[in-house]
């Protein structure tokens, strides 16, 4: 770099000893400004594709738990995705707690996946963590897989009564959304 710039001065005959350094500086500064400017110009076009404010605003819903009998489950729609709400039987809770957590593909305690005092309510996002299909097992009569929770027919993932992945290609447990109990029979998701 340095040697070629020297040659350039003597040929160009700029006359000033410091002309070289100044030119290099201007060259680099122009290049850097152009690069930053280009990135800044591209950014709005990319960010434009992220979720819009109104899409983000749809983010929370209230659901009444009245009428969901023990042993039943329902499906509600939240942010365009299904959420499974299961009213678990004591046996289902027991089954979820009797597992050696350390041997699960995605180790997580059942107690951490429900809210204290509401152990009978399991609330999970009904989207298979493999590639996004909706597992079967919420409606009466659907297959619930080998672990009595949910079964994803797309590529065969089995979930247990805590919504945890037990077998199949899915890498993670069904996601627990953020939700709060507004009162004993109503929850707010999101």
């Amino acid at each position: 770099m340095a040697s070629s710039s020297k040659a350039a001065t003597s040929e160009g005959g700029a006359g000033h000893g410091d002309g070289v350094g100044r030119r290099d500086f201007l060259f680099i500064a122009t290049g850097a400004t152009a690069a930053v400017g280009t990135a800044a110009a591209i950014w709005p076009f990319l960010n434009n594709m992220n979720p819009a404010a109104d899409t983000l605003a749809l983010a929370s819903i209230e659901v009444s738990l009245n009428g969901i009998e023990v042993g039943q489950a329902i499906k509600v729609s939240w942010r365009g995705k299904p959420v499974f709400i299961r009213h678990r039987t004591p046996e289902e809770i027991q089954a979820a707690r009797d597992v050696d957590v350390s041997r699960l593909p995605d180790p997580e305690d059942d107690a951490k996946r429900v809210q204290k005092g509401h152990d009978d309510w399991l609330i999970v996002v009904g989207v298979c963590t493999h590639l996004g299909c909706i597992p079967l097992g919420t409606a009466q009569g659907e297959t619930r897989g080998d672990y009595k929770g949910w079964f994803c027919p797309c590529h065969g993932s089995h979930y247990d009564t805590s919504g945890r992945i037990r077998r199949g290609p899915a890498p993670k447990n069904l996601e627990v959304p953020t939700y709060t109990f507004v009162n004993d029979t109503t929850i707010r998701i999101g």
């Binding site: 990319l46 594709m49 992220n50 979720p51 819009a52 899409t55 942010r79 365009g80 995705k81 989207v127």
Partner: peptide
């Protein structure tokens, strides 16, 4: 999320 422009298709 970026590809979808939201939280699902």
């Amino acid at each position: 999320t970026f590809l979808w422009g939201g939280f699902s298709v």
